[in-house]
């Protein structure tokens, strides 16, 4: 299935500068599977924003499926054409 990924702010530069990309995952994949795929695809800079040192999802990163934030602890299964947005919080003032 195809997943549309959107990166916000620092996530964008960590993912190589693109705002959006499409990723192909197996049916039944979850947000965590997507994160593992992206961390592997884009390397350490993005991986550091997505995953903590212990390999668990980083709690300070916000993940939205469609227009709703999802829980890292029990990430939902994704459906075909889902749009997933990653936001590392901003503090510019």
């Amino acid at each position: 299935m195809q997943i549309e990924v959107e990166y916000v702010a620092q996530m964008r530069s960590a993912a190589g500068g693109a705002t959006r990309e499409t990723v192909t995952l197996a049916q039944g994949a979850t947000v965590r599977d997507l994160v593992a795929h992206l961390a592997n695809r884009h390397g350490d800079t993005l991986a550091a924003l997505l995953l903590a040192e212990d390999g668990r999802p980083r709690s300070s990163t916000l993940v939205f499926v469609g227009e709703e934030q999802v829980d890292w602890e029990c990430p939902p299964e994704l459906s075909d054409s889902a749009k997933v947005t990653f936001l590392a919080p901003l503090a510019g003032g």
Binding site: A48, L49, R58, S59, S60, L62, P89, G93
Partner: peptide, 21 residues
């Protein structure tokens, strides 16, 4: 609730136009 810890990537200096802030 949204971010329980300081995100690791944040830097004190950041790109900014006054129109964005």
């Amino acid at each position: 609730c949204l971010f329980p810890e300081k995100p690791p990537a944040w830097k004190r200096q950041f790109p900014v136009f006054g129109g964005v802030s």
